[in-house]
Design a protein around this nucleic acid. Structure first.
Lengths: 289, 289
DNA sequence: GAGTGGTCTAGACCACTCT
DNA sequence: GAGTGGTCTAGACCACTCA
């Protein structure tokens, strides 16, 4: 995983998969032939994922032009030496990322080069910031273990008497505070978090390394007025409108892993969602627009 | 389309499909056997969609319990008399809506009864409001045809000299203003819009009826301070933080249909996104939380 | 009417989980 | 080691689009 070609002006391309592949590539003449024409480099994983990554590269290299047409599924299958089913799996991935259309009766149309962010990036502020080429920062302001409230027991599926770890953390982009994060972990997860340094960049990555698997997450986005704490920590005026994101993540078995309320300074991030008749994808963006 | 069973306490269930099926059902003993056990009622469409709708009903009826396990794909295939591929198509739909998990090696787990809203509801304020049981309102404050700006030509893929129709519209929920909408249509679409009454509830539905097909949309969400116009129209204080949603919709061929900037009063709506390793879905919600 | 994507089938093998 | 979901194949028919 993580093939890369040397070259200036490399762009970041995050594929859409569980074991999120990060693929660095450059703008110019891409080495696509390597993988498919010649000796099929390692790049383990499902064939359709590789196919999708490959086609994504072709699309972004303008192989079919913007608003151009893709070859038919049949011919793609022949070209790549796979069955039509595999081609369809790959195209479904691209479709989900908003790169191509799909309509019965006509060839698929290239929509553009939506740079969809990985699942990981939605959970991890640090992973996201790095992908943007920004320097992420974090400072834990407060952390303690206490009994779960009724709401928390409900959301985190805890029993009466269970404890949680609450963490208040300031997040920065290049030394500038942009977000205040209030997270509640079940004690099992919290035990891992409590051992970390106050400036640990990514709790998500630590948990990942500890074998915690994030599989699903729920995000709610709205506006909230800054309270006194927000204003103090973020350095803004009390009452100003902050972009709020409430996150809830579960493991593959549906067990809740965390519940968090994040408040962003206005103008620092935006959320982008691609939506189609069958699927959607969410991405966090830097700044407005 | 639109089967329904009589009965109190009916809940709204919106299936995830292009020709969005709206399925009303009640909480109690559901008539699931009708469709699969007996004579397979009409309910046209793909089998896997029907299967998904059916399983969704079972899940929401608590057939497998919350956090329960689904039967294996094999046994589902046998039970419903379809191939495993069809079962997998159906389960992919449920997965996309965040109703079930999926992990190699173990049975699928019921996550809950996420009430995913249809694609249509994301585009149409009116459709969304109705689904919430609220009374939608609209008043066009301003409308005119003018040459497209450079930005608009870019976004709407217009040629130099092309014109657009700009519309400023106030949106209400039960007589209370909640959102101010600034939309720009290519003149081809705008021509339809201009003929409408100022209190026409749903431009989207009109366009739909005119044969305009919405296939994909892009949504960007952030916060913006209310300007003088916003404050006046929405009846809020200038400078207050508004939830902003920028929408861009295209037809199945990727041709842009509209570009809109919507500003919501704080506390009136929130956006909910379900995100998983492979897919996501977006929904608009009433109020905070 | 030819071409295309949508749907469906019947099988196969594998990676993974759990007991 | 048995069971499960993930992946892949090779075919088939249909609904739809477009020349």
């Amino acid at each position: 995983m993580g093939e890369r070609t040397a070259g200036a002006l490399s762009a970041l391309n995050l594929c859409f998969s569980e074991d999120f592949e990060v693929t660095l590539y450059r703008g110019g003449m891409v080495d696509k032939a390597l993988e498919w024409g010649g000796g099929s480099v390692e790049t383990e994983g499902a064939q359709y994922r590789k196919l999708a990554a490959n086609m994504r590269r072709e699309i972004e290299a303008g192989e079919f032009g913007n608003n151009g047409r893709l070859p038919s599924e049949e011919s793609l299958a022949e070209q790549y030496g796979v069955s039509r089913g595999t081609v369809r799996n790959a195209l479904a991935l691209l479709r989900a990322n908003g790169l191509v259309t799909s309509r019965r009766g006509t060839r698929r149309v290239v929509l553009g080069t939506a740079r969809t962010q990985s699942f990981q990036e939605l959970l991890s502020f640090t992973a996201w910031a790095r992908a943007q080429g920004e320097e992420p920062g974090a400072r834990t302001m407060h952390s303690r273990v206490r009994p779960a409230t009724v709401a928390e027991r409900e959301v985190l599926q805890l029993a009466a008497g269970d404890e949680v770890t609450e963490v208040l953390r300031l997040r920065l982009l290049g030394r500038v505070p942009v977000m205040l994060e209030r997270t509640v972990y079940p004690s099992r997860i919290g035990a891992v978090i409590e051992r970390l340094a106050a400036d640990n960049l990514s709790h998500t990555e630590v948990l990942d390394a500890s074998g915690v698997v994030f599989a699903d997450s729920e995000h709610t986005i709205d506006v909230v007025a800054a309270n006194q704490t927000d204003a103090q920590m973020l350095g803004c005026v009390e009452g100003v409108g902050l972009l709020r994101e409430i996150r809830r993540a579960t493991d593959p078995a549906g067990v809740p892993l965390l519940w968090s309320e994040d408040r962003f300074l206005p103008g620092t991030v935006s959320f982008a969602v691609h939506n189609s008749a069958s699927v959607s994808s969410l991405a966090r963006r830097r700044g407005i627009r």
